[in-house]
C-alpha cells in the first residue's frame, strides 16, 4: 500500500477514446492505479492494449476522454505546464536527436529546454554519460552513433532535467543483451538511489521481471492484473507444464478443450523435429489432461516436466493467447 504522501502517479477511471473513420476505438477503459515515489512500475500488454496511450496521457501529450490523472499531484489535463516541469519521457522508437551535432551538444540542448544552468547541465551530462557508458562517444555526431549508443543518449536525455517521474516506452527495444542490461541497471539505480519514479510501458516480460517493483497487465484498455511480478506468478497457483512434443503440432486448439488449462505457448525446434509447449495449468489433473490431449491428437510427448510459471505464462493465462499469436494478428 502506498501512503498518500508518497504517490507520484495517480490515475482514476482513466478513459481515452479515439475517433476513427469506422467507429470510435476505446484505447483506455476506466484504468485506475497508483505509483509510489522511487518505484519502477511496469505497464505490460500486447500491441494496442492501451499502455502507450496511458503513458502519453501522463506525459501531457494526450488528453483523457474521461477520468483523471495526476503526476506529483498536478492534473495532467489542467496543469500540464506544472507536470512538464517534473517529468521527462523517452521512447525506444524515437530518434531524439539532431543528426549533425554531437551527442553532447544534443544533450546540452535538451537540458536547456528545462532552463538548467550551463555548468549544472554540463556536470549532469558528464555524470549520466559515464554511468551509461556514453562518455567516449559524446563528441560523435548523433547520426554516427550506433543504435545502442543512440539509445543510451536517449535515456540520458530523459534524465537530464533531474525529473521526479520518468515515462519510458519500450526503452530497450531492438538493443543487444548487454546494452539492454546496462540500461536496466541504470534505471534501477535512478529509482533506488535518487527516488525517481519510473513508469515503463513494454511487452518485454523479462525486462519487467528483472527491474519492476510492480506491474499492471493491461489488455483492451483495462487493467486485468496488478501486483509485484512475484505476486502475479504466485497467483497462478500450480506451476506450468512443459512438454517436448513430436512432430511439431500445427495448432494447439485441443489444449483449449482441457479443463483447467489457462493458456499456453509453443516454440518449434526444427533441428530436433519437435516443439516445446508450455501450458499454464490450474492443477495436476489439468496437466495430465493436457498430456493426454496431445497424445490423442497424434503427437508424441517426448519429455515433460513441471516448472514455476514465468511472467509470460501469467500474461498468457490472463490475456488468453500467446504473445506471438497476438502480434501476428496485429493486436486486438
Amino acid at each position: 500500500m502506498i501512503s498518500a504522501d508518497h504517490v507520484s502517479v495517480e490515475v482514476e477511471g482513466l478513459r481515452r477514446q479515439f475517433k476513427t473513420k469506422s467507429a470510435p476505438v476505446v484505447a483506455l477503459d476506466g484504468v485506475s492505479l497508483k505509483v509510489g515515489e522511487g518505484e519502477i512500475f511496469g505497464v505490460l500488454g500486447p500491441n494496442g492494449a492501451g499502455k502507450t496511450t496511458m503513458i502519453r496521457i501522463l506525459s501531457t501529450l494526450l488528453m483523457p476522454s474521461g477520468g483523471s490523472a495526476k503526476v506529483m499531484g498536478f492534473d495532467v489535463e489542467h496543469e500540464a505546464e506544472k507536470v512538464r516541469r517534473v517529468i521527462n519521457m523517452a521512447s525506444g522508437a524515437e530518434k531524439a536527436g539532431y543528426d549533425f551535432i554531437s551527442a553532447k551538444r544534443n544533450l546540452w540542448f535538451f537540458s536547456q529546454l528545462y532552463g538548467i544552468p550551463g555548468e549544472v547541465a554540463e556536470k549532469r551530462i558528464g555524470d549520466l554519460s559515464e554511468r551509461l557508458g556514453l562518455t567516449k562517444y559524446l563528441d560523435r555526431k548523433f547520426y554516427a552513433l550506433s543504435t545502442g549508443y543512440r539509445q543510451r543518449a536517449t535515456i540520458a536525455r530523459a534524465f537530464v532535467n533531474d525529473p521526479r517521474v520518468v515515462f519510458l516506452d519500450e526503452p530497450t527495444i531492438g538493443l543487444d543483451v548487454m546494452t539492454a542490461r546496462s540500461i536496466r541497471e541504470f534505471l534501477q539505480t535512478e529509482a533506488k538511489t535518487h527516488g525517481r519514479t519510473i513508469m515503463l510501458a513494454t511487452h518485454n516480460m523479462a525486462e519487467v521481471e528483472a527491474i519492476c517493483d510492480r506491474v499492471a497487465i493491461i489488455d483492451k484498455g483495462k487493467i486485468i492484473a496488478e501486483g509485484t511480478p512475484e505476486d502475479l506468478k504466485r497467483s497462478l497457483g500450480a506451476p506450468a507444464l512443459v512438454m517436448e512434443v513430436s512432430p511439431p503440432p500445427k495448432d494447439l486448439e485441443m489444449l483449449r478443450q482441457v479443463a483447467g488449462v489457462k493458456g499456453f505457448t509453443s516454440s518449434a525446434d526444427e533441428e530436433r523435429g519437435l516443439s516445446t509447449v508450455q501450458v499454464v495449468v490450474e492443477n495436476d489433473s489439468a496437466a495430465n489432461g493436457a498430456s493426454a490431449a496431445m497424445a490423442t491428437a497424434g503427437y508424441r510427448v517426448v519429455a515433460s516436466w513441471r516448472k514455476e510459471a514465468t511472467l509470460e505464462e501469467v500474461f498468457v493465462a490472463l490475456v488468453g493467447s500467446g504473445f506471438k499469436e497476438r502480434e501476428e494478428e496485429g493486436g486486438p
Binding site: L61, M89, K95, L113, G115
Partner: peptide, 18 residues
C-alpha cells in the same frame, strides 16, 4: 516525424521561443 516535437511539448519550454 522524428519524434523530437514530442520532446519539446513535454518540456516546459515555450514553443514560440524555440
Amino acid at each position: 516525424q522524428e519524434g523530437l516535437f514530442e520532446i519539446y511539448l513535454t518540456s516546459p519550454a515555450s514553443i514560440t521561443a524555440i
